[in-house]
């Protein structure tokens, strides 16, 4: 396959960026999207040019490191992560636009790499359970109903890649935050911090400069892990409940 790539190039966080056009040839339809970019970078290095910076780690679709908005879609045309997207989703002669996640809360570090520490700070605000350290507790000491376990697992699938923010016209992090809140709030292990978790995580989410939710549903469509849109309604319910329960001293 021969492709024309239009890639966002930006030297550093403070520099102005622009789309640069590259031609790549000899792309196999079995290559992953990242392998295609590796091919481009090898050529750029041979030519003595600066390779395109992009995030990647496991390349197995489970770490959440890879990003890229491909032809306007977060993670490209298939419902998966960019590393699991294959070049058979494109045709010979295609022009492909590659851009970084765009959000005020995700500043560009270089080229296609953005700083997603805002998500880490949302997790630090409440995305944990207080557990006593020491030996592991007896597994059956805390029974969890099967539907609750399934619900928690569905939300635990979130890998924190940020595609929801990238796809949302408001740059909102509601789907990410709701996945993390619902995952822990439904479980008995998460019960002691049930109210403070949702209040603090939503508070941190707002403090990071993410937009609000207008329920366009773009986030759930882009999510490679299929976190469903009703998760947001479930978090809103938790947030309203917590507001009734917690008195602000």
């Amino acid at each position: 396959m021969k492709l024309t790539l239009r890639v966002w190039r930006q030297r550093n966080a403070d520099a102005d960026g622009a789309m640069s056009t590259y031609e790549v040839d000899g792309i196999s339809s079995d290559m992953s999207f990242l392998e295609m970019l590796d091919t481009l970078n090898e050529e750029l290095i041979l030519r003595g040019e600066d390779p395109v910076a992009f995030d990647h780690d496991c390349r197995e679709g489970i770490c959440g490191a890879c990003s890229l908005v491909i032809n306007g879609d977060a993670h490209g045309p298939e419902r998966t992560t960019t590393c699991q997207l294959h070049m058979r989703s494109f045709r010979d002669g295609d022009t492909i636009d590659i851009e970084p996640w765009r959000a005020a809360a995700f500043p560009v570090v270089k080229d296609l790499v953005v700083d997603r520490s805002a998500f880490d700070r949302i997790i630090q605000a409440g995305g944990y359970v207080s557990a006593p350290t020491g030996s592991a507790p007896e597994a059956h000491a805390t029974p969890v109903p099967k539907p609750d376990a399934d619900y928690a697992f569905e939300h635990a699938e979130c890998i924190g890649c940020g595609a929801c923010v990238a796809a949302c016209p408001n740059g909102s992090a509601m789907l990410f935050t709701s996945a993390k809140v619902n995952h822990l709030n439904v479980l008995p292990q998460g019960a002691p911090e049930r109210e403070t978790r949702v209040l603090d995580m939503v508070g941190q989410m707002d403090a990071e400069g993410f937009g609000g939710c207008t329920l366009t549903g773009e986030c759930a469509t882009a999510c490679p892990k299929g976190i469903p849109l009703p998760s947001i309604a479930a978090m809103n319910k938790e947030w309203l409940r917590a507001n009734r329960k917690v008195s602000r001293g």
Binding site: G72, E99, P169, G217
Partner: peptide, 25 residues
Amino acid sequence: LSRRDINARPTKYVHKRKRASYATR
């Protein structure tokens, strides 16, 4: 909320595509 939403995406995507339903937009 609208002001906040607009500020949350200061740089627009170069590759535009139609997002969400007519009623939503």
